[in-house]
Design a protein around this nucleic acid. Sequence first.
DNA 1: GTCTAATTTGCAAGTCTTGCTAACTAACAA
DNA 2: TTGTTAGTTAGCAAGACTTGCAAATTAGAC
Lengths: 153, 153
Amino acid sequence: MHSPAELATQFRSMGRKLTPQRQLIFSLLHNNETHPTAENLYGIASAQMPGISLRTVYQTLNELAEMGELQLIDLGEGGMRFDPNVDDHHHAVCGVCGKIRDVHVKGAASLKPNDAGDFMVSDVGVVFRGKCSDCESRAVKRSPVLQAKVSKK
Amino acid sequence: MHSPAELATQFRSMGRKLTPQRQLIFSLLHNNETHPTAENLYGIASAQMPGISLRTVYQTLNELAEMGELQLIDLGEGGMRFDPNVDDHHHAVCGVCGKIRDVHVKGAASLKPNDAGDFMVSDVGVVFRGKCSDCESRAVKRSPVLQAKVSKK
DNA sequence: GTCTAATTTGCAAGTCTTGCTAACTAACAA
DNA sequence: TTGTTAGTTAGCAAGACTTGCAAATTAGAC
Ligand SMILES: [Mn+2]
Ligand SMILES: [Mn+2]
Ligand SMILES: [Zn+2]
Ligand SMILES: [Zn+2]
């Protein structure tokens, strides 16, 4: 995603308005590596701008996505995640806490399906599933009792 | 996924009943490579067993998934897809018609994130996005004007 | 300041999936 | 065969997430 200032320029040049709501959302996304949901962003935005609506957050995110400034990631758990990083990269998803981490994968771009007939590949995505280091150390440190409790759910 | 007969045995050994609804769903999934949604299966099932409920389809699919007999795939468009193929394989998704095709990827299992700290990888998934051959030939046969428009992008 | 098209809000509605429970039935024993 | 009962189904309500809609608001231009 471009910087908030650049996005501002871009929006204006498209005949769009630069509202405080949009500015706030731009700033919340800038350098944001948490892969937040719309609800996540709404929560943070509300703290700084009480009254902003979830609808506006969705609206702005969709606009940015259409402009190619955001990447959408769907993990099949909870809502869509929004990624301001549109450079070539991939993701590692923790099955315990759900956090998504950016990763780079050497040789990913040259991966090819070896039995896909005439399928024309335009994009390759790699997702690693597993456990993040935070969850790993937490699991070790916790009492076996708590552990049992958690895994039940 | 195991064969319908094997699933039947497995269900019974778990103290579960072998109902006609379950048997039908087992048979619809057997060797099914279409990656159907619950609604897709419900449609087909209804033709053979009028009155079967969508709720039961979901229920059975979830049971099979918990038993490790099905893989769930979420593409962020429409509903969850259910894949009875739980062997190591990957997917190519057509952005035009939405069809998912199984593909094998040489070296996928050995892919590693090169900057993921202590993330413990337990599974790697590769998704190719692009256009399937059906949609490609369909595009060629249609007006060249439309085609130029598309290929520009 | 005035004007107006773009934007924001709040709520209704849509899509997909799950919770709940009364009615039903497969499985088993007598 | 019949009775028993724990497991299952069907139907509908409700939950989670996202979008449609339209009245009220406002950024940006003149
Ligand atoms: Mn990312
Ligand atoms: Mn598959
Ligand atoms: Zn984690
Ligand atoms: Zn296609």
